[in-house]
Simulated scan of single mutants.
Amino acid sequence: MLYVASSVFAVLMGIGVIVIRMKASKKPTSVKKIILPPVFMSTGALMFIIPEFRVSLMELLEAMIVGMLFSILLIKTSNFEIRDQQIYLKRSKAFPIILISLLIIRIIGKGILSSSIDVGELSGMFFILAFSMIVPWRIAMYIKYQKLSRELGK
């Protein structure tokens, strides 16, 4: 039951990200819009105060490596363009496909791993995976944004 509920929640979050991304391409972006999501997400690390969510060093490293590898796909599909002397996030047809694919991989992985890893530890690992994916992605976006910003002379 918990697996199904968390999978449904993950799908809804994925749909939300796709919708937000599509809306974001219609408005100019800013440093704040790039940096704030990982800052807000970092509060989720408070889950590790509770012992059931703590992971071993090996689980931490595994989740971080997988997250960083997944971030490569997001980095490749996140580009900016200059329109009307402002910087916009470019719409990518591949982004929703990649996001849905990552979501499916996550759900399958969670199903497989839930039989051998405690649900609390697994939750901790998936938080680490997501955070390790969003931070490099947003750093890359920030670098790309700054490059275009310098071109505009801002």
Rank of each mutant, 00 (worst) to 15 (best):
F131N: 02
D84H: 12
Q86W: 05
F126P: 02
L60W: 00
S114E: 00
K110D: 05
A63H: 07
I100C: 05
I128Q: 03
M68D: 08
L89A: 10
L57G: 00
G111C: 08
A94Q: 14
L69F: 12
D118V: 01
I50C: 09
G124D: 13
P51A: 13
S123E: 06
A130C: 09
K90V: 12
I65F: 09
I72R: 02
I107A: 03
L102E: 15
I128V: 11
L99P: 08
K110M: 03
I105E: 09
F53N: 07
S71F: 12
L61K: 03
L102V: 11
T77G: 10
I87T: 05
P96F: 12
S92H: 08
V66Y: 08
K110R: 07
A130N: 12
I82H: 11
S115W: 04
L99I: 14
I104G: 11
A63W: 06
L69Y: 03
A63K: 05
F80H: 05
F127C: 03
Q86H: 14
F53A: 00
P96I: 15
M125G: 11
V66L: 15
F131S: 08
G120L: 01
R91L: 11
Q86S: 14
L69R: 01
I100E: 07
Q86E: 15
G111S: 13
L73G: 15
L129Q: 01
F127T: 00
E81P: 07
I104C: 12
L103I: 11
A94D: 15
G109D: 00
S56L: 01
I107L: 04
F70L: 10
F80C: 04
L73F: 15
S115P: 02
L73N: 08
